[in-house]
Structure formats: C-alpha cells, structure tokens
Amino acid sequence: MERREWMKVMALSLGGSLALPESVFAQMAAPLDVAKLKFFSEPQRKLVGVISETIIPRTDTPGAIDAGVPGWIELIVQDCFNEADQKLITDGLTAIESLSATAFQKPFAELSTEQRIKLLTALEQESKKENGGQGSFIRKFKDLTKFTYASSEEGATKAFDFQLVPGRWEPAMPLKPGQKAYPI
C-alpha cells in the first residue's frame, strides 16, 4: 500500500464522525514502511485506526494515529503474531463492528467518542470475567496499542520522557506533579 493511499484510508476511517479533528492525520509519523503492510483489509485498517485513537486520543500530546500506531499494529500482527493471535485480532475487529451495530445501529467509526469509549469499556469489563481478561481480544489489542505507542518516536518523545543516554543514576529523584513517565 502506498503511503498516500494509506493516509487517505486513515483520513476516511473516521467517516462522518466529527469526534476527531481531520488534522490528526496531517503529520502521521511513518518510520515504518507502509508499502509492506498487507495484512488487514481496508475496512479492518480503518477500524484499527479508530480503535487505537479511541484508546490513545490526541490531546496536548500526539494521539495513536499521530504516532503511527495503526501501521505498527498491522506490521506486528502481520509479522510477529502467530495464526491464533492473528485470528484473535481479526475476529475481535468483526465483533466490535457487530457490537456497534447492535448497540448503536452504526459503524464503530461513526460513533461519538463517548459511545466508542462506552463500547470498549463494556468489552473490557466483560473480558475480565474470564481469566482476568488475559487472552481476550480487547486486552491483546490494548496492550499492542500501548506498546506500539510507547515504542514510537512521537509517543516516546512527546507523551513520555525518552532518554537514550540518561548518563547518570538517581535512585530517588523527587517526582514533580504531572511528570511524564519513561517509555523504556
């Protein structure tokens, strides 16, 4: 998939929803080669973008899409996950759309932010009834979103305090209110 095309898909992925400003797609970081992404169908790709941005929205720091999270997710599901985990993800995406259709009679991308959070929260709470949520789609997808965001340049350097070479060890540094955590 071409980068330009990818940007278009991402831009369209929120459909008619006004919940997310169009501008979040303008400077999507792309240190990964989107031409190599072949795993998701276009509707799946859009949905991954919407879910990840719902998990980590743009605030005063970059959101999931700014950080290239959807692309990293696709790359990792495609190249790192085994078949069972790949199926967990694709089945989970299908389930989200059907939950959305049942609850709101709309595709997930067209829901308001509040509705999307409500749906994901219900899914998360439900999943925790079994094995504390381990092995569920929502846990897997959320963990992957967290990982790819914290490991991305935008996320690590803007939402977190990334230090490649800290240069010293302070075992007990005073913590300031609102201080950003470390990505590694």
């Binding site: 980590i56 720091t61 998360e124 950003k180």
Partner: peptide, 24 residues
C-alpha cells in the same frame, strides 16, 4: 522500580492516556 506503561490500566481515552503516560 516504579511501574511503567505496561501495567494494566482500565479504561480508554483521555483519562486512560493520562494514567498510561504517568508513573505507576
């Protein structure tokens, strides 16, 4: 050490993000 972003945090959206990017 203080827990990092990989700890389990319930929820989604802005509130989740705030906690996720803070020290555990």
């Amino acid at each position: 050490l203080r827990q990092g972003w990989s700890r389990q945090i319930d929820g989604f959206g802005e509130d989740f993000k705030k906690e996720f990017t803070s020290f555990g």
